[in-house]
């Protein structure tokens, strides 16, 4: 008989000590790779994810070029050492699905029509995974796009909500995702108020789903503030260096 893990303890705290509506600790850095046109790095809890953008650039192979817009391609990939049991480097079905889903999360935000016959390639590498990587991956990819100077209608930010041990929670980690009752990842364009990624697996009533959706959007708004800060920091560090020299 397998022991069922308690995901919420008597004090209402989760396995990592968080309260139900707490996000994991998040750190973001922009412009971390010198070769890519844009890049960013995120740590969210124990997730460590790198994103790079190349483009707009010539499409290879040529026959894939679109006459009226840029071709957007996205590759979500997990490093073999990113998970407990070594994962084969070959793209799994899950990685293929997530590559598609993340591409579709970012696409509505990008002015692709401005760059016909080019391609914009997004690479997301998960160096360490602990649940919610498609959300953190979407968030960091949006930062890389902004860093590359690719014009966007809005930033895209993502966060998951769900249910564990009967309690509505925000930002599920790996154990909560595997053992909990439901997981609802959401990507959001905060200024336009639109949802560009939405999935759910588990078992929820419509009302519970509504609550999870709203909670996930709240989480997105909080993470969006961190995105803005990380982008603005590109200016501030330079300003500080200048002021230092003037002293």
């Amino acid at each position: 008989m397998s022991e069922k893990i308690r995901l919420i303890n008597e004090d209402g705290l989760r396995v990592d000590g968080r309260r139900p509506r707490d996000l994991r600790s998040i750190k973001m850095e922009i412009g971390v790779l010198s070769n890519a046109d844009g890049s960013a790095y995120i740590e969210q809890g124990r997730n460590k994810i790198l994103a790079a953008v190349y483009g707009p650039r010539e499409v290879h192979p040529r026959h894939l070029a679109l006459p009226d817009r840029a071709l957007l391609r996205c590759r979500y990939h997990m490093a073999p050492f990113s998970v407990e049991e070594r994962k084969s480097p070959a793209p799994s079905r899950r990685e293929i699905e997530l590559s598609k889903v993340i591409k579709e999360a970012l696409e509505p935000a990008i002015f692709l029509e401005k760059f016909p016959r080019t391609s914009i390639d997004i690479f997301i590498e998960v160096l360490q995974a602990d649940g919610g990587t498609r959300c953190a991956g979407t968030t960091v990819a949006a930062l890389a796009l902004a860093d590359a100077g690719i014009p966007m209608r809005d930033l895209v930010v993502a966060c998951a909500a769900g249910k564990v041990d009967g309690v509505l929670v925000l930002d599920l980690n790996d154990i909560e995702d595997k053992e909990g009752e439901a997981d609802v990842p959401v990507a959001y364009m905060p200024n336009l108020g639109l949802i560009s990624l939405l999935q759910m697996d588990g078992s929820l009533t419509i009302e519970e789903f509504n609550q999870a959706l709203n909670l996930a959007i709240e989480g997105c708004k909080q993470i969006y503030n961190l995105q803005r800060e990380a982008l603005r920091a590109r200016y501030v560090t330079i300003k500080e260096d200048v002021e230092e020299c003037l002293r």
Binding site: A109, F111, A146, M152, R153, D154, N191, Q227, R232, Y235
Partner: peptide
């Protein structure tokens, strides 16, 4: 001021210049 993609800059009878829509 530093602005990021999607920031609402202005409302009214203005012209959208570089890097805005």
């Amino acid at each position: 001021q530093v602005v990021t993609p999607g920031d609402l800059l202005a409302e009214g009878d203005y012209i959208a210049g570089n890097n805005t829509y």
